[in-house]
Design a protein around this nucleic acid. Structure first.
Lengths: 348, 348
DNA sequence: AAGAAAAATGTTACCGATAACATAAAAAAG
DNA sequence: CTTTTTTATGTTATCGGTAACATTTTTCTT
């Protein structure tokens, strides 16, 4: 393997000092045009660029942001990563990816690794405090002392940090209101996992909306459904088979679009006609929503914009310290066919 | 922002030299138990870990692999990235992501950036040579002199590198054979973009299979269809509306599952019943294939395994240089409902 | 043309770790 | 109780840049 030309090689060959080479590279105006030309020539000849590691060591920073999320194969997080990447790229920064898997524990090791890598900032996405160990907040507080921290998560964060929050209010309100407008009264919520923070918050918001709109909040309408399609299939089967068909809900709101995918499949398997026999609303407005049958109405939390803000704020925080605040990007409902609204369907 | 403790801090506080600290960190056995304990205590107290940048500079490597791909929001590449991440992680390496966008040009700047970052290896995924500029191979050849290079792409690569190839033979053969077995004779191919290498290769393989099986290869059955759902919708409409219905194909093979999604939607919109009126086979075996209606039969190229091999080989190549060879992971057909095979459908 | 001011370039310590080499301390041998 | 061997620890150059400061060269005054 070749050795890359160093600043010393360039300096020697151009007959100047390393300082001058740096000046040329950095476009310092205090260089005579003749020398600048000569040095630039040598630089070009070797396609010289200063070594990252050396620059990082010298400057004490890495020009890289960490993005910590459960899994990138999840479309929601994938979108966050993608948006974060481009926003960082625009500012000459790279992204270092960390996956925590389902358990989402922010271990002390992870914190140390982040410090070790001299990250210019960290973005935590997803529900991150669910881990059992109590020293999590301690670990994060410590992290906050070394670099700016941002979170995109559904919880309140006790930590001082840039906190981009999902719009949980509308995330619950919009589907319920939409269904209510269409005449639905019995609305079920198939949500992630009840002992996780995000689900319980979403669930609570959902119940609250039911009460606000004076709709029944039968506990049987409130079921754990995991985060993927298989779980959705099982959950809806479990819920409906445990209920006398007269008590069946007429609409189902799911934790995310994947769960909705499973629900749709299961309902069809049971011979229901959608959206006539059951309205469905998903969450995340994934790319495939327009291509399910019926096309899935879904809540968009705009993860891209949240990631963008997060990265932008992290980069700002590098300079002026102690930026700590919360931003909420409003959620929107994207109406498609799965509630029947498109053909003026109205249930009594 | 805090300053991270350095090896000097630790050495001073423990009353030893930096060399001893390094020894303790590196678990060098040539350290007296008493000193080891004392140093370890100080290390623990400060949660000291050696600085990455310093280690990188000293060792001349980054313990990081670059993954260069068009877009991560594409599920296929997403899976590659995910698999690469875990394989690298298992070996204590991180991944540095580079997105090239559709044009997929490997610019000289990218090459320099990769060298600058002292990547331990690069994995190129996707059809990478499509760019117009002729100096691409030059750029990549140059790159190969600085670090091991691996590619996961459908083309033959002239470059000396670790070359993980998609199984294009079976990728074309399996769908055609399956459809042939089911009695189909008029089979269409809706493929990416005809002036791209991957499509023309897939298309060529497809035509060859038709000939092998003595099936008609009407040029009207061979249409550009882009890479996403919208393009698929348009393409199938274009193809069918240009054809007398007696000449319609009875089966459609698509470039990928996204295109298939669009095709399904469009065909339903046209009032066709699937799979009775049209069989469809996608490619990539994406997570949603089991949840389309009808469930989509698809070819799995096993991108995860390809990425795994690629990363494994890259890491090996760091030590023993000049590993240059090709691996092909056999493609498999995952039969679901979209060709009617599940209910014994056989067309004459 | 001498001196002052401005511009161009060079010198060097430092960033944080590592490892070859040197030295000191402890253990074994005589 | 030396001397030799082994083991433990310290010293220092190095990796490739950067920037403060020092020095040299050029330009401008008068």
């Amino acid at each position: 393997m070749n050795r890359k030309a160093t600043i010393y090689d360039i300096a020697r060959e151009a007959g100047v000092s390393t300082a001058t080479v740096t000046r040329v590279v950095r476009k310092d105006p205090h260089v005579k045009e003749a020398t600048r030309l000569k040095v630039q020539q040598v630089i070009d000849a070797h396609a010289y660029t200063p070594s990252m590691s050396a620059q990082n060591l010298e400057s004490g920073r890495s020009r890289a942001l960490a993005v910590v999320l459960p899994v990138i194969s999840n479309l929601y997080f994938n979108r966050i990563l993608d948006a974060a990447y481009w926003e960082a790229d625009k500012n000459g920064c790279s992204i270092r990816l960390f996956q925590t898997m389902e358990n989402q524990a922010i271990s002390a090791e992870l914190v140390n690794e982040l410090i070790r890598c001299r990250m210019d900032g960290v973005l935590f996405a997803g529900s991150i405090w669910s881990a059992d160990r109590g020293d999590l907040n301690t670990a994060l507080e410590k992290l906050g002392k070394y670099m700016p921290v941002a979170t995109i998560c559904p919880q309140d964060v006790s930590l001082e940090c840039i906190c981009i929050q999902s719009d949980l209010v509308n995330c619950s309100r919009l589907p319920v209101r939409h269904l209510h407008t269409l005449g639905h009264r019995r609305i079920a919520f198939l949500g992630g996992s009840m002992h996780s923070k995000d689900t319980s918050r979403r669930g609570a918001g959902f119940l609250e909306q039911l009460r606000v709109m004076d709709l029944p909040d039968d506990p049987a309408y409130h079921v754990d459904a995991g985060y993927d399609m298989e779980s959705g299939e099982r959950a809806v089967l479990r819920m409906l088979s445990g209920l006398d068909s007269s008590r069946w809900p007429t609409a189902i709101v799911t934790f995310n679009d994947l769960v909705a995918l499973g629900v749709i499949k299961q309902l069809k398997k049971m011979g229901l006609s959608l959206p006539r026999d059951m309205a469905i609303i998903g969450c995340d407005n994934q790319f495939f929503c327009a291509y399910t049958d019926p096309a899935l109405t879904s809540v968009d939390l705009h993860p891209e914009e949240m990631a963008q803000s997060a990265v932008r704020e992290l980069l700002l925080a590098r300079e002026s310290s102690s930026r700590s605040f919360a931003i909420v990007r409003e959620a929107t409902l994207v109406v498609r066919e799965s509630c029947g609204a498109h053909f003026g369907f109205r249930r009594l």
